[in-house]
Design a protein around this nucleic acid. Structure first.
Lengths: 155, 155
DNA sequence: GCCTATCGTAGGCGAATGCTTACGATGCCC
DNA sequence: GGGCATCGTAAGCATTCGCCTACGATAGGC
C-alpha cells in the first residue's frame, strides 16, 4: 500500500462532475426564479461583475454564450434596470455594459442565497477535503479549456 | 480575520463545475470516437459495470437517460457484440443486460485511456488538494440528487 | 379470470443550444 | 479614401434532450 496511496477505483471525473453540476444548477433555479432571473441572465450579472466595461461579444465569450443569443437577455436586463447599455463614445459600434446599483444589489442578493445553500452542502464534507476541493476546483476552473481537453487549441 | 480562513470570494460551485464538466467531456470525446463509442454508449458500458443484471428501465434511470432514448444505443451495442440482451426467463417482459467479454475489454480500455488523461490533469494540482478534491467529489457525486438540490424530493 | 402496472418499443413535441449567414454601421490600417 | 475587420442585431438550421402518448406483451394481486 505504500506507493499506491490512491489506487482505489474511481469513476471518471466527467461522470461525477457533470451530474453534480446539473444538480447544483437545479439547486440554483428556484433561487433564481424567486428573483425573476433566468440562468443566462444570472450568468450575465456575474460576468459583468468586476469588469467595469465590456463589449457584448466579449461578455458572451466570457460566459460561454453565443454572441447572438444573449441579446434578448441583455434587452430584458436593461429594461428592468439591472444593467446599463450605453454606446461607447470611443467606438460607436460597441455598447458599454455595466451593472446598475440595482443590478449589483440583485446579483449580491442572489449570489449570497445560492452560496449559502452551497455552504450547507459543503459543510457536510470533512474540513480538509473541503479546503482541497475548493482550491482544486478553482484551479481547474481557471485553466484555459485547451489545457483540460489536451487539444493544441486554436493555434 | 482569524476565524475567517476562507472568506475569499469564490465563484458559485455550479459556475465552476458546469464548464469544467463540459471541458472534461470534450476531452473524453476524441478517445470515445477512437473506439467508435458515443457518449451514451460509454455511459451504458459504465452503467452495466458491476451490476450483473439489469432491466433497461433501471439502467436508463441509473445513467440519467430516458428509457426510450437508449434503445437505439442498446441495439447498436448488442449488434457490435459489446452487450448481451437476453429475455429474462423469470419475467418475459424484461431483458437481462450484461457486458460481453469484449464489452468489458472495450470499457476497460477506454476508461483507462480517459483516466490516464485525467491523471495528467490532476497531477498539476498540489498533492493535498488533489486528495481532498477526489474524496469530496466522490462524496458529493454519491449523494442522492435531492440532497443537493435541497428539495424534499419525490416523497 | 380481471384489473392494473410494468417492460420494451415507437413516434412526436417543444425548448434549448451551437453554429451559420446576412446586414448595416462603424473603426482601423495603409 | 479604400479595403478589411468588428460590433450589434436578426433569422434560420440541425441537433439534442426531456417529456409525453400509445401499444402489445406480460406479471401479479385478488
Amino acid at each position: 500500500m505504500a506507493g499506491n496511496t490512491e489506487s482505489e477505483r474511481r469513476p471518471d471525473l466527467a461522470a461525477m462532475m457533470v451530474p453534480l453540476g446539473r444538480a447544483l444548477v437545479a439547486a440554483e433555479l428556484p433561487v433564481l426564479r424567486e428573483h425573476g432571473l433566468a440562468m443566462w441572465a444570472y450568468a450575465v450579472l456575474l460576468g459583468l461583475d468586476d469588469e467595469p466595461v465590456h463589449t457584448q461579444a466579449a461578455l458572451a465569450r466570457d460566459i460561454g454564450a453565443d454572441k447572438t443569443r444573449i441579446i434578448g437577455v441583455l434587452d430584458d436586463l436593461e429594461e428592468r434596470g439591472l444593467i446599463h447599455r450605453q454606446p461607447d463614445p470611443r467606438d460607436r459600434r460597441a455598447r458599454l455594459l455595466s451593472l446598475t446599483a440595482e443590478g449589483r444589489r440583485v446579483r449580491d442578493t442572489v449570489q449570497s442565497a445560492i452560496q449559502e445553500r452551497e455552504e450547507r452542502l459543503l459543510a457536510r464534507l470533512p474540513e480538509e477535503d473541503r479546503r482541497g476541493f475548493l482550491r482544486a476546483l478553482q484551479t481547474l476552473a481557471a485553466m484555459p479549456r485547451a489545457e483540460i481537453t489536451g487539444e493544441p487549441g486554436p493555434s
